[in-house]
């Protein structure tokens, strides 16, 4: 019986974390299907989807990875997923938009923007923020599939701009694809 696990690992960044984690998974007989890792201000976080061709518990995985000889602490979580991922459905939805929000940093900006998305049933597919010289920049990839009126969202954005003092722009993802990618 196959088991599919979603595993997340967090640690102070250093060379060799991916090698250590993938080594432990290999030792358990796991096959890494998807992996995504990111480093933010010296901290690494990694999310993996792993297939095992035998029954295995999250506890075994966590203990095996945690037992790896490491100069940093590896915080591990694992969870079994029951539903097979729909491989056909990995492309971006047709109503994928990019929102950029920039302004002076203060508390609650991410919450203000993300709460706006929630109110309008907009799913955040990807989000990256940076701060430089007290200027805060958010770039969000959004799925507006459940939004019926883009005009209304744009109107509401005006209010959000006033409330947060952020400069907010919303454009279709296609625009960024065509200006930055060469089709092949």
């Amino acid at each position: 019986m196959n088991t599919q696990m979603i595993i997340s690992v967090m640690s102070s960044d250093r060379p060799g974390i991916v090698a250590d984690v993938s080594g432990a998974i290999f030792a358990l007989g796991g096959d890494i299907a998807d992996l995504n890792q990111s480093v933010l201000r010296g901290y690494l976080t990694m999310i993996l989807m792993v297939n095992f061709d035998r029954p295995i518990t999250p506890k075994t995985i966590i203990e095996t990875i945690a037992a790896v000889q490491s100069s940093t602490t590896l915080d591990v979580m694992a969870r079994e997923i029951s539903k097979q991922p729909d491989i056909e459905d990995i492309s971006l939805p047709a109503k994928t938009y990019i929102m950029t929000a920039r302004g002076r940093n203060r508390k609650g900006l991410v919450h203000g923007v993300s709460a706006f998305c929630r109110r309008h049933d907009i799913n955040i597919l990807d989000l990256a923020t940076t701060m430089a010289d007290d200027r805060y920049t958010m770039v969000l990839q959004l799925d507006l599939s459940r939004v019926s009126s883009i005009v209304q969202v744009r109107e509401q954005l005006m209010t959000l701009r006033e409330e947060t003092g952020l400069t907010i722009m919303l454009q279709h993802h296609d625009l960024f694809k065509v200006t930055n990618e060469i089709p092949f």
């Binding site: 950029t100 990807d126 920049t137 770039v139 990839q141 722009m169 625009l175 960024f176 930055n180 990618e181």
Partner: peptide, 16 residues
Amino acid sequence: MLRSDQILATVEMIQK
């Protein structure tokens, strides 16, 4: 996802 700097460059072109 496209890189943030690419996205911001395009936004800048439209906005300013």
